[in-house]
């Protein structure tokens, strides 16, 4: 029972390693370093990296910008709540508002074009989850997060909230269209 007794040899740190341990430590260390370097590598050569760009702002200032974009590029309204559908030009700044318990407005983008999509919450934390593409980003109040997104395939996508935000969390779902 020696793992629960003091080591029998007092100078245990001079005990030589067995090959099984030495070899495994070597292999594991190399693997750990490979995993570490994959992250910087992907920043240089990969195409999916979460943007570092974020700005401190207030809900009022953010909402104002979102409303300006909606006023300029609205193409139609959907559902009984008349949620505006916005079709912004490629390369432009698009504001998506997360609040209890809806996403606003609905975005209509074009495949192969890039957009600067802003994400911010008006109240609590929310989770931006684009399905079935499976891109998941945390949405904070007070932090305007700017991601440059390039949709690749046309279709109708869903944005659901995947950060628990209270009793109606499960009703917080919207659409994103790619033409």
């Amino acid at each position: 029972m020696s793992a629960i007794l003091p080591p029998p040899e007092r100078v245990w740190w001079k005990q030589p390693l067995d090959r099984v341990e030495g070899l495994w430590i070597g292999i594991a260390l190399v693997w750990c370093l490979i995993m570490f370097f994959m992250m910087p590598y992907w920043h240089v050569y990969g195409k999916q990296n979460l943007a570092n760009e974020a700005w401190r702002t207030t809900p009022e200032a953010y909402m104002k910008k979102a409303e300006e974009v909606v006023a300029k590029y609205k193409v139609r309204e959907e559902t009984d709540q008349k949620i505006p559908v916005v079709h912004p030009p490629a390369g432009s700044d698009v504001y998506l508002v997360a609040r209890l318990w809806s996403w606003w407005p609905i975005l209509e983008l074009e495949a192969g074009k890039s957009y600067r999509i802003h994400l911010m919450s008006m109240d609590w934390l929310h989770g931006f989850s684009l399905q079935p593409e499976n891109i998941n980003v945390e949405v904070h109040p007070g932090y305007d997060h700017v991601m440059t997104v390039t949709p690749t395939r046309a279709g109708s996508y869903s944005i659901i909230c995947n950060e628990y935000c209270g009793i109606n969390h499960h009703t917080m779902a919207s659409r994103l269209y790619v033409k």
Partner: peptide, 27 residues
């Protein structure tokens, strides 16, 4: 997946400084 933290910070910390703690668990 949070805004406001840089990739450098995320990479160093999430790799537990190059996965040295993962190494420990593998050991």
């Amino acid at each position: 997946a949070d805004p406001g933290l840089t990739s450098n910070w995320k990479i160093f910390n999430t790799s537990y400084a190059m996965y040295l703690a993962v190494l420990a668990s593998m050991v």
